[in-house]
């Protein structure tokens, strides 16, 4: 068993673009944001210009509760690059507001992961820079 922690090596970091800027700014402020359609109310992630449900261009940024449950998971033993320490646990989380996010599980033993497990967001500046803060999830 291994305690899962955020990566601290030289991992590839996001380069925020014009569409995703508010998302990454929220992470720097400790807030997980998603987009909600002003016309039909559907939630969207990853950051988009257009509503996936009704094609409206009226998307607004909304603060998430940061809570959800694990939808699926894997536990990686062969790292994508040597910068990643194994095991690490990629997860898909179903957020309370009805959107999906891909992240890693941290803060528990690697064999404590299960579909349906309630989780909450936790932020780490894994790249050693304050400019990029990554959302991870821990057991709630």
């Amino acid at each position: 068993m291994t305690l899962l922690t955020p990566q601290s090596g030289d991992i590839p970091l996001p380069v925020p673009g014009p569409i995703s800027g508010p998302y990454w700014q929220g992470c720097r402020e400790g807030i997980l944001r998603f987009q909600r359609c002003s016309d039909c109310g559907a939630s969207t992630h990853t950051p988009a210009l257009m509503c996936a449900a009704c094609a409206s261009m009226s998307l607004e940024w909304v603060d998430s509760s940061g809570r959800g449950e694990i939808y699926s998971w894997t536990r990686v033993w062969r790292p994508v690059t040597p910068a990643f320490v194994t095991p690490y646990v990629p997860i898909i989380v179903t957020m309370e507001e009805g959107w999906f996010i891909l992240s890693n599980l941290v803060g528990c033993e690697d064999d404590a992961v299960a579909i349906g497990q309630p989780v909450e967001v936790v932020f780490h500046n894994s790249g050693g820079t304050d400019d990029i803060v990554l959302p991870y999830f821990q057991r709630a």
Binding site: P14, G17, T46, Y71, S72, T74, R78, P90, L102
Partner: peptide
Amino acid sequence: RPTNEFVAAYGMFTAAEFALMARRHMH
């Protein structure tokens, strides 16, 4: 392992992507 701002930092690559599908099917 394509570079992407919502995937790369989480150590994703092909095997992990398919594993997430397989795990859901198992569940």
